[in-house]
Amino acid sequence: MSQYPESAPGAHPDKRALRRELLAVRNALPVHDVRAAETVLAERAFEVAELAGARTVAAYVSVGGEPGTAALLDALRARGMRVLLPVLLPDNDLDWGTYEGPSSLVRVQYPGKMALLEPGGERLGPDAVTTADVVLLPGLAVDARGMRLGRGGGSYDRVLARLAAAGAHPALVVLLYDAEVVPHVPAEAHDKAVHAVVTPSGARRFT
């Protein structure tokens, strides 16, 4: 679940331009390629040791041309992991619920956004993410430093700030296509590097 506004007011102009370019490429991907990547990502993700050994994972439901997460969500549950999924709040912050399989998801249409699939059960509160061993982050690109380019809506900036305030240190992992690992992502002072990226070619760690 990551269809948030493409860019927040005052967003870095280089980030806005790069987002437009990357989204255009994603939007042109054939459905077959998106589905094929989803299957491979569900296997490659467990090359990240923290994910393979996690008890609780905060994830998201992919939309549109994003690298698919459906197969990975079910693979996490099959390993006995607790999977948290986000629920969009009116101020663009995120609440969380537990993923109990595809039938537990409900389709929610937000004004001005694509319809999102969200967990239909109990709401656990925004702080539930601080219990995760691994947080899977949506993104559009990552560079050699591990700097992630998000969509710019600010939802996951709040998640990262909440983790820091709670003294929580989960592994941060972004799921991307191979071509979205780029030489450089424009970074600002508040941006935080991820620990690893997973693409159809495999997992890569950052130091």
Rank of each mutant, 00 (worst) to 15 (best):
L137T: 03
A193I: 02
V194A: 07
D74H: 13
T98R: 10
A8Y: 06
T130H: 03
T207Q: 12
Y4F: 14
L22M: 12
R26W: 07
E6D: 14
P126S: 13
N92Y: 02
V181K: 05
V106P: 00
L124N: 10
L41S: 00
V34I: 15
Y4K: 00
A168Y: 00
S104A: 13
A161Y: 04
V174G: 03
V182Y: 03
S2L: 04
S201P: 04
T39M: 09
R16V: 15
D14N: 12
S201F: 00
V34S: 09
L85A: 07
V181D: 01
K192Y: 01
Q109I: 00
P67S: 09
A171H: 05
L124A: 11
A11R: 05
D91H: 08
P126H: 11
L41Y: 01
E122S: 09
L175E: 04
H169C: 01
E43R: 12
P119W: 03
A52I: 05
G120D: 03
P5C: 03
A179I: 10
V108R: 15
T69Y: 11
V173K: 05
V174Y: 00
L137I: 07
F206H: 05
T130D: 06
R151S: 01
Y156E: 01
S62R: 11
L160Q: 12
G65F: 06
P5W: 07
A24D: 14
A115R: 07
K113H: 13
P170Y: 08
D95S: 06
V198T: 08
A49S: 15
R145M: 01
Y99T: 07
R151A: 01
G153A: 00
D157F: 01
V159A: 07
A24H: 06
H169V: 06
M1V: 07
L22D: 03
L18G: 08
S7F: 15
E100V: 11
L76P: 09
L116R: 04
A70T: 03
G53D: 13
A49P: 11
G154S: 12
H190W: 15
H195M: 10
S155A: 15
A165P: 04
G167I: 11
M1W: 00
E38W: 01
G154K: 10
D157E: 05
G65Y: 09
G80C: 10
R44G: 02
V31D: 15
A17P: 02
A70Q: 13
K15I: 11
R44D: 03
D14M: 08
L76Q: 11
L176F: 05
E100Q: 14
L85F: 02
M114Y: 11
R204Y: 00
A42F: 10
V34E: 10
T207K: 12
G139D: 05
G112M: 02
L136H: 09
P138F: 06
R79H: 11
A128C: 08
A78Q: 13
M81R: 15
D91W: 06
P102F: 09
V198P: 08
G139N: 07
